[in-house]
Design a protein around this nucleic acid. Structure first.
Lengths: 356, 356
DNA sequence: TGGATTTGCTGAAACGATTAAGTTATCTTT
DNA sequence: AAAGATAACTTAATCGTTTCAGCAAATCCA
């Protein structure tokens, strides 16, 4: 009666109801022609037998795997794993799964993952961070019918790939401008890594450009020594801060390229008995949950992560449905400044806070 | 000549070489009987056409999908995403992929993901944290031939599921004992959530048990008021710490159930002008990267995350190969105490540090 | 009443691989 | 030289679905 070996199949259901497998399939796919009575009978048999369709077989036939490949250069990065999380939720709502690969910042691994995903017939690919080299991706896109690809936080110079970027230049500009407005005129920056893993990620040069532009706009000089290289981690932020504070005339304000480094910088400031923001102001970037609760609370830029994940899913699904009418997009998202105590002098805050 | 529609298939390769698809398949699967000359000819055709096998089709036939389903209650949790990362690397080494679902602490989502994964014919399932209810999992395991399941950080009372646990009782015992040895006798604890999401995760009761046992062993009384409930986040640690410090006679030392809360607690201590560890000592749990670099560096317990991920993969692969000879395991991992400055009084450290 | 249409269903060919069971041609062995 | 073994393939079934073309019976229309 039942299956001899593995799970029950559509055949078992069909036999059990005395219909053909085509009819069962019609019920599964909600074909209109099946009368309610038959439909109910088959549904019941499905329940009873505990039948679940084999999606592999379905995918083979329909040429849609209903899974999306995701390659992320480091899932441990809070920004990236939040994106992955959001992405997984959005995709879930569209009955799709996410096959996750962590490329560990290595292009060889990334390339290998990329092809593995294609062999698994993913419907689309999402690249987060610096996971796949431009050459590899470029070569793939030359193929007759590549799957939709969206890159997050990486500005490939390739047509045919969707890019979702955060306007880091603008972010850096706003952060710096905010510090200028607060009256600081010696403003330093803790950047991300300038070369090696992570440096290919979109933000780096943009950050510096925005920072420079804001200084220029304020008539302040750009000074090389005020830019210290970090590694996006807490420890890197500390080291960079130590270098900056050791300068002959250290900066009075710091813009860090992410919150983790900003927190490291704050810790070093505390260590050296400096008060924030009186002695030195700090602005971060990311708005991680901790940022609101540190001492002092951290001024930072909030990135619209949910929107980015949603946009990624939207673009992919649209292109899957009809590639011809949905050309690749390049969308820029803007982070919004969240002003907290780490960059606003108490008296200034009071002056701003009370209506004139 | 080439494909008319999608990707080239094994048929295209066969036609191109004037052999049957069986021969091409034999080359792909490294069958011994194919002579070197033929093999080379076919390999070359594969290169030239750019053929890549369709793993979906392969899986359908071989009944091995070469993917492992992972459901995690919150990928944003640093402990969990590190496990996922490690798992993805171990699986990669065995030519397997990871289909990731984030259940967002919701059992309904978890259940839905669970079945979706099964329909996708995953070879095995990894459950991380509190992602799938015991009922759901139990019901599945009654089926004729369930896939191997390993649960990380969740002690299901079910045979047939592999459990990888961290000996939280022992960890809490060691942490508390360590504080006792440092001379503190009023030791408080910041626990995880006692009910609701997260409370089903293995550690909770165990933590308290270990804490209690260590107090007993030292002849110290257990006091309800010294245990404050947190939520595993920085902010929760701060709140718990504020409650503890507001006590009539506050604790002199704190064990927090994770590092994030410990850092929150430290911040509150600083805010109240308390010195660590002179006024109050703090021990965390997790050994996140930041812990080594905070002010002061945080004493904590390091969890063998890589080992756990490796064990998960090992168990799964072994059971896939031969289920009969590999009964479900329940393995306990132990965290190791990493002593840093947040719990050791300077003079004590000096006394310990200099040889007698 | 008789042809056209609709309703409800079935048969069989895909999808792209693997694989057991055949089929030659060539090489040993006696 | 006949029988058997081996090497180098091919044929065709199969995995579990979807889907299209077909088909009988019922219903409709004039």
């Amino acid at each position: 009666m039942a299956e001899r070996n593995g799970n029950p199949t559509i055949k078992d259901v069909a036999k059990h109801c005395g219909v053909s497998i085509a009819t069962v399939s019609a019920v599964l796919n909600r074909a209109a022609w099946v009368p309610a009575e038959t439909r109910a009978r088959i549904q019941q048999a499905i329940e009873q037998i505990g039948y679940r369709p084999n999606r592999l077989a379905r995918s083979l036939k329909t040429r849609q795997s209903y899974s999306v490949g995701v390659i992320v250069s480091d899932i441990t990065n809070p920004f990236f794993n939040d994106i992955v999380r959001n992405l997984s939720h959005v995709l879930y709502q569209h009955d799709r799964n996410l096959i996750l690969c962590d490329s560990d910042h290595r292009f060889d691994l990334g390339a290998s993952n990329f092809h593995m995903l294609l062999e698994k017939q993913v419907d689309a690919i999402v690249l987060i961070g610096d996971s796949v080299s431009a050459e590899e991706l470029g070569a793939y896109l030359l193929r007759p019918q590549p799957v939709p690809v969206v890159a997050i936080e990486r500005d490939y110079e390739l047509d045919g790939v969707n890019k979702l970027l955060i306007d880091s230049e603008r972010s850096a500009f706003e952060a710096t401008q905010h510090l200028v407005e607060q009256g600081y005129d010696r403003i330093g920056m803790i950047s991300g890594p300038q070369r090696g893993p992570g440096s290919g990620s979109y933000g780096q040069m943009q950050f510096e450009r925005g920072y420079r532009r804001a200084l220029e706009a304020a008539g302040l000089p750009y000074q090389d020594v005020l830019v210290a290289e970090g590694d996006f981690r807490y420890g890197g932020g500390q080291q960079a801060m130590r270098r900056l504070l050791a300068l002959h005339t250290p900066p009075q304000a710091i813009f860090a390229a992410n919150d983790m480094m900003a927190l490291g910088a704050i810790q070093v400031a505390h260590e050296q008995r400096l008060h924030i923001p009186e002695d030195i102001a700090v602005v971060g970037y990311d708005d991680i949950p901790m940022a609101a609760q540190t001492l002092p609370p951290l001024t930072t830029l909030a990135v619209p992560r949910w929107e980015i994940a949603e946009a990624a899913a939207d673009v992919l699904l649209a292109q899957l449905k009809d590639p011809s009418t949905h050309p690749p997009v390049r969308r820029m998202f803007t982070a919004s400044l969240v002003v907290r105590a780490s960059s606003v002098l108490p008296q200034a805050a009071a002056a701003d806070g009370t209506p004139a």
